[in-house]
Nucleic acid binder design. Structure first.
Lengths: 224, 224
DNA sequence: CCGTCTATCTAACGGTTATTAGAATATAAA
DNA sequence: TTTATATTCTAATAACCGTTAGATAGACGG
């Protein structure tokens, strides 16, 4: 019944693109992608971060690997997964941006995560970069330190959320603090900001993570 | 068992993004999106173009509408669908680019569609634009004329594929012809180029369609 | 070699989705 | 109003996917 020419070829092409689509059609796989955008991780770490079993994590990773969005590297007993390149992070940022703009339910849920006053949250990246360079603000990376080491915002200092309480004295009370984490869906910066404000520091949350930062064309830093 | 805070909120957020992912996880829905990127269409037209039943088309459009990627507009007996904004076209271009780069099967299938010598196919958009402006090449839009009217490449002339045979005299034999259609997956420009070459014209295919062109930041034209 | 840890494979279940046919709705024309 | 056309809704089936449990394989320490 197929009248038009090349219908089989076309079907094949769209099917291949749909494999990428299928890979990003599951909430847990998206969460795994977001975590992997911060740096490579063992399966066990991924399972813990996404709050699912190792078995299920493995199954999802298999799907992502089949779509060539992630790849694995064996090191002794562990297998470290990573996103295959930065375009995958761009895809994640784009999907999230699209969803955020379109889906009302998401906007409602996001409202809970936004730090209330957040003057600096709306500030554009370039201005923040300039202020950080001049030392007018302290940019704080509250992710685990391995993620900081993979890549972080320029002039950012690493104090993982778990160590924040014991390292408060490292944070000067003079400067305002801008804390960031894995991105808009991550709760670490929110927690850090709330705690710092209770301790009398002036702290606001930056919604962007490294993926969003890079997608905006802004530079990242890697320490040696 | 959920230890971490905000797990419910996070699940909700990822689920919302996954709705966008689900919408682009079906080959037919992707095909519909690509067609809608060329301009608004009736359900019946979409069904014919994607080679599926009207009922199934309607069901897929419902999904796409739920994800807020497309919207419908009633006009008399017909309902015209269109992509909700240009970001949707960007998503399509990005997904296709990702798939093209990663999936070997797709590369193999693409090889069949590429016009062999295609000197101009590799030429960058800016250079083509300059040549077209100086009248050194004839840029030919072989899509249906309503799609040309919605948006087309600058300096492009519209001769729908169906009318090509009867309007051959409009195409000067002096200038090389660059034909384009809906994009890399569309077969119309390929057919046009093959036919023109048999008629002694120097014709090559441009793989980009208007969505790819715009995603590269190049200007489009709309006639009044 | 044996046990342990990490990750995957297999099989199975329950729920979801694609697809089709038939009924229903909305608009325009007669 | 009746009739025709375009589209959607409902119901039903078959295929697919997420999830879990149990068995399997690879790497390290004894």
């Amino acid at each position: 019944m197929t009248k038009k020419p090349g219908r089989e070829v076309k079907n094949l092409l769209y099917e291949q693109v749909a494999r990428i689509g299928k890979a990003v059609s599951s909430p847990k796989r998206l969460e795994l992608i977001e975590i992997l955008c911060q740096g490579e991780k063992k399966v066990e770490e991924l399972a813990a971060a996404a709050d699912i079993s190792v078995k299920l994590t493995s199954a999802h990773l298999k799907e992502l690997k089949a779509a060539r969005l992630v790849e694995g590297r064996r090191e002794g007993k562990n297998i470290f997964y990573r996103v295959v390149d930065a375009q995958v992070a761009d895809l994640w940022v784009m999907l999230r941006a699209l969803a955020e703009e379109r889906l009302l339910e998401l906007q409602a849920a996001m409202r809970d995560l936004v730090t209330r006053p957040g003057e600096l949250a709306a500030m554009n990246g370039k201005d923040l970069l300039a202020q950080a360079k001049r030392g007018e603000v302290l940019v704080l990376d509250v992710r685990p330190s391995d993620e900081y080491e993979t890549a972080h915002l320029p002039y950012a200092r690493s104090i993982p959320l778990a160590e924040l309480k014991s390292r408060l004295e490292e944070i000067s009370a003079d400067k305002p603090v801008v804390a960031y984490c894995r991105g808009p869906f991550c709760l670490m910066a929110k927690e850090a900001v709330e705690w710092l404000n209770r301790k009398g520091r002036r702290a606001v949350r930056l919604e962007s993570g490294v993926a969003e930062w890079r997608a905006q064309g802004l530079p990242l830093a890697v320490d040696d």
